[in-house]
Design a protein around this nucleic acid. Structure first.
Lengths: 131, 131, 131, 131
DNA sequence: GTGGTCTAGACCACT
DNA sequence: GTGGTCTAGACCACT
């Protein structure tokens, strides 16, 4: 279920983390669920085990997963906890984006309309299927 | 007037470009205005002239500036043209940000409210002073 | 009575050894008392028999238990002997911890006060119930 | 000034982090001071650049350092901030150590005496020379 | 020159 | 089998 796009300029280990986070937010991964082993996922995605290792350790650091040597890697955080963890970061991202919009003199009302339409399309395209 | 933050993770040549674009959008730089010379700006910002050179070449490539060998670099684009050039990019950035928000189950109405308040604060804090 | 925490980063065989040692120090296990069989404990804790085997062998090596092939494993050491065996190790641990405290400029008097209060709480919470 | 002990069982990248933290706490490294480059330190300590990279990234993650690609790695945290960051961890370590001591029936007064003497020796041996 | 990513492959302790 | 550490070496963007 974890997938990557080898063409993307986003580092592979980051893509893996994003993929796992999405699966947690979607309710597919639950607390204490076991992740694929470093080696099996490396084989599946056809990338080097070190890259998987780096991704798993990054998530361990963020408290999203925990790894027990000799036993495996597991989900540590619920969807709700992950939401609370990521909220400040995404609002900071929104701040940056809005500043760029204001600089281009785009009216706040236009942005609001765009936001509402974007939400509709996202919902229709199944992005909201786990709501 | 061109300024950079040496601590930022954004490449310095990108910061220079962003700074020049801001000055155009703010109406401070106008078409055919001359930019500081590579050497003088390098001295002023205490960075390598090669970095300035790279920033100016990047803007030349984007059609934002033009350089006349032996004479200097000049603004090529009006604020309005620059706005039209940057609009698609900023909307793409907005798309990415909104997708992140929907993934965290943040309601579109909350986002709209946040957008309106952000716009108010930005206007009050002088961000809108060049409108 | 032997218990482990499957989420802990401490190796399971080490946890088993620590658990047995605690039971000896608490006076629950006495010299020549029989330990649960490898298979029964493996079943009880839902872990691999090899892990139990490794824990028992480690304790045999330390002289804490002895194993009679075909008959089982038994306690070899009294609480008092175990105390004497472990004292140098725990003082070495204390040395390490104190060095860390001094590096952070924490005053020795603060540490002493903390030690006395920790001892009180430990006693009240039943940690000292086997004294 | 950064040094490691290749014989220690502590991972090299952890030793590097501990070494840098010590230098900050000792007042030798100050905010915005530049660390040796990944390659130069790797050459100096005769270890692989990847190991240095891992150490620096770990410190970046903890907010102790910051790295600017193409420019270098720098100290991000003052001695005082680092002290506040590490205090909870060292007190947790102390809790564990004290629990071990109580289990061995070592009196709190003995521990206090030991603490005071340890502090004296540490001070005399120059560990406290930066106080 | 600088840090960042990735591959290939070895070896370790633990299960 | 599992994750964790480390080496050796390549290539990238940025300075």
């Amino acid at each position: 279920m974890i997938s990557i796009d080898p063409r993307s300029r986003i580092p592979i280990y980051t893509q893996i983390q994003q993929s796992v986070e999405s699966l947690i937010l979607a309710g597919i991964y639950q607390v204490d669920d076991q992740l694929p082993s470093v080696r099996s996922l490396a084989g599946e995605l056809a990338i080097n085990p070190n890259t998987i290792q780096k991704a798993y350790q990054s998530m361990d650091n963020d408290g999203i997963t925990y790894s027990l040597p000799g036993r495996g890697s597991f989900i540590a955080m619920s969807a709700e906890s992950l939401r609370q963890l990521r909220k400040p970061l995404i609002y900071h991202e929104l701040d940056t984006t809005l500043s760029h919009l204001w600089k281009l003199h785009i009216p706040a009302d236009d942005v609001c309309t765009y936001v509402q339409e974007h939400r509709k399309k996202y919902h229709e395209q199944g992005g909201g299927s786990f709501d």
